[in-house]
Write a protein that binds this DNA or RNA. Structure first.
Lengths: 210, 210
DNA sequence: GACTGTGAAGCCATTCACAGCT
DNA sequence: AGCTGTGAATGGCTTCACAGTC
């Protein structure tokens, strides 16, 4: 499978489809059509079929998709057939919230460590994990086989934290700080900018689009 | 200005440009080129110029852009020349984190109220705001002129909360719950799905793209 | 008749390349 | 010479429409 030819938008929708399918499973639904999936998640049926076609043929013409099978396929495609170990750097409010975020845990992301350099926060307990010093990063990553780092520190510290994460051997970084980070190109970086979304709303409200 | 012809990606980048320009202002930089902006935020110079061109001509050929002026223009374009009143529904960890999120406050979003239906959370103090019952929504929105609602409740409650927000007169909603919400089309809705981003990383790690 | 899978068409965003200004 | 603003070219994602299958 050549993942670099697959649109990122497609991957994001796959994630959404899988959650919709999970809901159907809970309701014991056996079969679903691309049209129903599309209605359920807010895209066209053609889009659903095109997205799935990147990865194979999962349906039956005239019938639709078996919910359970399709769910399984998508979870495997997304690499969620296993669990991922994660470290969060930054034990402020956002880091704390994310460490307890059910959406992560439910989908196989295990928060193994929460690190910070602020002595006031070190020692705090979040659920069953204790906030520890950022000095323990290398040890945590290697002993716990952590492959993903989440950055929730202030912008000014973000690049330093990134460098430390890269050096520790983490393979992917999810950055919540509003900064452009530099990473070597064997490390995958994604940015989530919370302010941007509110500002898009502000823009739309101002020019009352639609 | 016809905002409905402007790509959403452009609006999002405008938000990012403005923060980059703010950093330049702090460093007393007077003038900047599209190339420098592009380098700073990780896009091409042509992209920067195209984006700005949707809104007018802000630069001087042969010279570049005056940092302060361009910043001011973009802030106005984004509707950030004023402050926006916001209500957060859901005082769990995520709601609490967002209510204290500096990135919102700094950009003129004022969290006026945090509401929840969980009696255990009502009465908690977050900074200077007290968590109150969701029953007070209508009153809050009208007396405090709130135009934006942020949803951080569990998925099952999200549609009910949305309906309440719509009825209260809120004009835009930022939804952090992983659900497809229905809103009348005079209300603007944006979804932020935190899990999706980690799952895209999982996908990329699995097929080591790039 | 219902629904998938897919080539072709359409559409939208990004990049190119250069004329025009300082 | 340096840099913006922009029409033209490119590239990529989405929609269309229908052949293929149950």
């Amino acid at each position: 499978m050549k993942s670099n030819k697959i649109p990122e938008a497609t991957v994001m929708r796959m994630s959404i489809y899988s959650r919709f399918l999970f809901q159907l499973m809970e309701r014991q639904v056996q079969t679903v059509s691309s049209n129903e999936i599309g209605k359920g998640v807010g895209v066209s049926s053609a889009q659903v079929r095109k997205d799935l076609a990147y990865f194979g043929e999962f349906g039956t013409r005239g019938v639709g998709y078996r919910v359970k099978d399709l769910y399984g396929h998508i979870m495997n495609i997304l690499g969620l057939g296993r669990s991922w170990n994660v470290v969060i750097i930054g034990a402020g409010k956002l880091g704390a919230a994310l460490s307890l975020y059910k959406g992560f845990i439910d989908r196989g992301f295990k928060i193994c460590a929460i690190l910070d350099n602020n002595k006031e926060l070190i020692g705090n307990r979040l659920l069953n994990i204790e906030v520890e010093s950022i000095d323990t990063l290398n040890e945590k990553v290697s002993t716990q086989k952590i492959s993903i780092g989440i950055i929730t520190v202030p912008a000014v510290e973000a690049q330093n934290v990134t460098n430390a994460l890269v050096e520790s051997g983490v393979k992917a970084i999810l950055n919540f700080s509003p900064t452009i980070l530099r990473v070597p190109n064997n490390v995958i970086l994604r940015n989530v900018d919370l302010s941007v979304h509110l500002e898009v709303l502000s823009f739309n409200l101002t020019y009352n689009s639609k």
